[in-house]
Amino acid sequence: MSVSLNHTIVHSRNNRESAAFLADVLGLEVGTEWGPFVPVETGNGVTLDFATAAPGEPITVQHYAFLVSEAEFDASFAKIEAAGIPYWADPYQKHPGEINHNDGGRGVYFLDPSGHALEIITRPYGYQEDAAE
Score class of each variant (00 low, 15 high):
120 I>M: 10
10 V>A: 12
125 Y>A: 14
3 V>K: 14
1 M>A: 14
74 D>K: 15
31 G>L: 05
2 S>A: 11
26 L>E: 05
34 W>R: 14
77 F>Y: 15
71 A>C: 00
85 I>S: 02
96 P>N: 03
79 K>C: 00
62 Q>F: 01
101 H>L: 02
14 N>F: 06
49 D>N: 10
20 A>F: 01
52 T>V: 08
7 H>Q: 08
47 T>C: 13
93 Q>F: 12
114 S>F: 07
72 E>D: 10
122 T>G: 13
15 N>G: 00
53 A>G: 06
101 H>G: 09
47 T>A: 09
114 S>P: 01
8 T>S: 07
122 T>H: 04
80 I>F: 01
68 V>N: 13
96 P>S: 01
2 S>R: 09
28 L>M: 12
122 T>D: 09
113 P>F: 06
104 G>N: 07
23 A>I: 11
75 A>C: 03
30 V>G: 05
41 E>Q: 10
110 F>Y: 10
63 H>D: 10
14 N>S: 13
84 G>R: 12
89 A>R: 08
55 P>D: 06
99 I>N: 05
45 G>Q: 05
125 Y>Q: 14
127 Y>S: 10
123 R>E: 09
123 R>C: 03
72 E>R: 09
33 E>R: 15
13 R>G: 12
129 E>H: 11
86 P>H: 04
81 E>A: 05
131 A>F: 06
59 I>A: 10
57 E>S: 12
82 A>I: 08
133 E>Q: 04
72 E>W: 09
9 I>T: 15
65 A>G: 14
133 E>H: 09
97 G>Y: 06
51 A>I: 11
30 V>R: 05
125 Y>T: 11
42 T>E: 05
61 V>H: 06
89 A>I: 03
122 T>R: 13
47 T>K: 10
55 P>C: 02
58 P>V: 10
90 D>K: 00
26 L>W: 13
122 T>L: 06
106 R>M: 02
43 G>N: 10
119 E>A: 11
73 F>G: 11
52 T>F: 07
116 H>Y: 11
53 A>H: 01
81 E>W: 01
98 E>R: 13
42 T>R: 06
101 H>W: 04
86 P>Q: 08
124 P>S: 05
57 E>W: 00
70 E>K: 12
26 L>T: 12
92 Y>N: 13
105 G>F: 04
63 H>L: 01
53 A>P: 07
96 P>F: 00
103 D>P: 02
53 A>F: 01
60 T>I: 04
16 R>D: 13
129 E>N: 08
